[in-house]
Design a protein around this nucleic acid. Sequence first.
DNA 1: ATGGCTATATGTTATAGA
Length: 259
Amino acid sequence: MKIATFNINGIKARIEALPRWLAEASPDVVVLQEIKSQDEAFPRALFEDLGYRVETHGQKGFNGVAILSRLPLEDVARGLPGDASDEQARWIEATVIGAVAVRVCGLYLPNGNPAPGPKYDYKLAWMERLKARAAALLAAEEPALLAGDWNVIPQAEDAAKPEAWVADALFLPESRAALRRIAHLGFTDAIRARDPRPGLYTFWDYQAAAWEKNNGIRIDHILLTPQAADRMTGAGIDKAVRGGDKPSDHVPVWVELEA
DNA sequence: ATGGCTATATGTTATAGA
């Protein structure tokens, strides 16, 4: 089972690039972030015609997440638990029925800039809620993963210019500590487990020729429960997508599970 | 570089992103 995460930065803007990548990469399951679309406006028929079931959790203008799956889905849930007043569409999860069932969680973690401030407070509070959901997933002792745009640079080697990010919500010590507290509950960072080298990036800004200079950061992550990590047979970053026609500023990250 | 580009809706300007 090949599972990918991709922050597409607007489904309307990626109406050609996303199907093109699906045809090339042929993932079984994709969690999407920043669909920037309401559920009724999402072009679901386009993806159904490609063989994917479509589950969306959208909102007007920004945010919005979705799951595309060639395999059956059960128990779809929308919204991160823990705050009924949170109206931002940043979380969707479902059980994918492969040879083994896998609980797939798609997340779009708040950016948090400017920090300090209310947006940063929201980011840290959201991560606390995420930690609670993550702990519950581990307690179930089943194959599960947390995939998405985490908006956190884990370590200095995950940025081409770490010094440029020291005051940014993506790299502040509190953000990194919150990510570590979740990961250290017992998750495996799929990309890091397969490749310890620095210089692996998933995002390149549209500005200042960041892509041409390879001035990137690694902020899209897939975290696996032990039962999922035991089944991992591969993981990767589809970096070339950033150089394609009308690209998102993020690229897909994927993991292959024996499931 | 003091956000330099991109996307969307709030639309010929503002908001958000990272």
